[in-house]
Design a binder for these strands. Structure first.
Lengths: 346, 346
DNA sequence: ATTAGCATTCTTGACCCTGGAGTGCTAAAG
DNA sequence: CTTTAGCACTCCAGGGTCAAGAATGCTAAT
């Protein structure tokens, strides 16, 4: 054992070889097969020794005594770190993306199509989340009386995310129009966050005055007409059928599909792991910590940003033996494309 | 054989018994089991004779020589017709529905939650489609300049369906506002269809005049800002995980899931079978004619209507051995609830 | 018109067996 | 000290056989 340093040169090489052949074949890999495909002619016995070391160090696991080795989560993490990230997306994939996203210019639609595209080119589950985050710039609001006691509030952000909700309010249309005009004139272009803060301040200040306008605004504000925060997400999950090809048994498969149906959970998952600050693609190995049904599944995702605003996220969920390099470049490509398209369209 | 009349009294009884036990157990049912559970003490041999007749008439099928009989599509159709439709939904199910739909008042949200509810209480796939049909009454439109050459058009129907799209247009905001005011003042409450027709007429008429307002309106109209027709649907498919429990093999399961992911196909399917005119629940047996992957699956659906306007449809898709009675009452209950809730909220 | 009896057919699950792949250890070779 | 060859051992996967069970169709008796 190369005591001390966790992994030496030879170990690294063998480890990546194991990970790669396992990803390719799906079968536990043994010393024999490895020896054959290895560039430097190492004998199976040598490899066996190294493998034993790696197993001790926690990088490999044995399904049972006389089977080959399977990479552990640790191994995948290590493997992913090794990846250069230099690869670029194949012409074919770029073509698929271009075709699907042709002419799209608003966030929602981009997200919807993208989840599909991601599932197509990754052959796994493509997920996108659009959050109406507090950093979004307000384009305008619109209120419309729907019937007795009901008001429809439509809120549009600069990037084209539309959020509508029905409120229980009883205001005449003219008051609604006045309130909308007031907000649009004063706050167009503000971030949701800032707008809400300022609005709260003014409402506080002018509390005493029994201004009709401000009263309407206050009621709307209270009822959440102006929120477009984390709870206002739109989630797209596509390509669940790709999971059937995997080697899970029925039960696990069902649990997986169920989990994917719980959009809320998915949003939390992405939210928890995809840091707004980080630019690049992030790979999360060991999803079962958050979601037990996701044992042996990984998340490859990136935040969706326009300039410095985070509009949501892109992700692929697939088995640990996913094609990391390919998926990572795909996700990253799409994230960059998103920024580019949305930025220029403003 | 009771020659002539397709099915006699005894035949009918035995046929329904077969269908029911097959639905309950999922195994091909043989003469022996049937004889035991049958109220009038008929011997297995007698039953065998009848079964042979029914098989000749095309109501039963044999997986293989020495297995029991399985109902054919014909048998299910016959069985469903026998159903009284008198059953009412259990308290429990009503509770689930009430809880999920509490406080919902707009179509979209109703649809979204309903697809979930349907999948929950049917233990199958729940589907809802909201179409912005031409019969919808216009509540109002709103246009907003998004950036260079881009306009966001928001169209709200009386029932709360919101349709937004981005157009390639270059008009100043004031023109957009004027156009919106014009449309809202003149056409609020009209059906989309009528509004579009009238608008087309007026545009035609006033063609010569180079009215700035009408020019804006025309451009918007041309770009489809005012369409909310069949192509503008929102589809919700929920509960695909329920299919895993079925006895399909991997391949079929995957095909099924893929089909369900193709929302467009689903919409067409519902559209093809759910006639707007019919009031009640409709059961379609033999889905594979339209969608090969849907062999042995049935559709139980009803149009979603508010008054006389069709807003979309509710449906459950499940295996032929679904609980017809239960599912039918559930779908019908929801369809009625939809009408009730949406009607009163207007 | 029913039913009992019987030979026949076909699936299903249990069981056994063998081949192949892989491991770990020991001892020899570099 | 590192590498390798050899070998005994373990375990899974697949194939084959077998017996049990469930139904059937037919014939003959009621």
């Amino acid at each position: 054992m190369p005591s001390g340093s966790p992994i030496g040169d030879r170990e690294r090489e063998i480890l990546t070889a194991i990970v790669e052949t396992f990803i390719a074949t799906g079968d536990p890999v043994g010393s024999r097969t490895l020896a054959r495909s290895n560039r430097e002619g190492l004998s199976p016995a040598t490899i066996r020794n190294v493998m034993a070391d790696l197993a001790d160090a926690g990088y490999l696991e044995q399904p049972h005594t006389s089977a080959g080795r399977v990479p552990s989560s640790e191994a995948y993490r290590y493997y992913v770190e090794q990846l250069t990230g230099k690869a670029s997306l194949s012409q074919e994939d770029q073509g698929i993306i271009k075709d699907s996203l042709h002419g799209v210019s608003d966030v929602q639609e981009f997200m919807e199509r993208t989840s599909h595209v991601l599932s197509l080119i990754s052959h796994n589950v493509g997920i996108t989340v659009a959050v109406g985050g507090p950093k979004n710039a307000l384009e305008h609001v619109y209120f419309s009386r729907l019937g007795d006691q009901k008001v429809l509030a439509v809120l549009v952000t600069r990037s084209g995310l539309v959020r509508d909700r029905v409120l229980r309010l009883d205001l005449p249309q003219e008051d609604l129009d006045a309130a909308a005009r007031f907000i649009n004139e004063n706050f167009r272009g503000w971030t949701m966050e800032a707008m809400r803060a300022e609005l709260a301040r003014r409402l506080e200040q002018e509390r005493s005055e029994y201004d009709r306008l401000m009263k309407s605004v206050e009621q709307l504000y209270r009822q959440g007409a102006l929120t477009a925060d984390e709870t206002a997400q739109v989630v797209f999950v596509e390509g669940a059928s790709n999971l059937v090809t995997g080697e899970q048994d029925r039960q696990r498969l069902q649990e997986l599909l169920q989990t994917l149906e719980e959009k809320q959970k998915i949003v939390e998952l992405l939210g928890a792991y995809l840091d707004a600050k980080q630019e690049a693609v992030r790979v999360v190995i060991g999803l079962d910590e958050a979601l037990p049904s996701m044992r042996n599944f990984v998340l490859i995702g990136a935040p969706a940003r326009v300039g410095d605003d985070v509009m949501g996220s892109f992700a692929v969920i697939g088995p640990t033996r996913i094609d990391y390099q390919h998926t990572m470049t795909a996700v990253s490509y799409i994230a960059r494309l998103f920024d580019k398209i949305l930025n220029e369209s403003e």
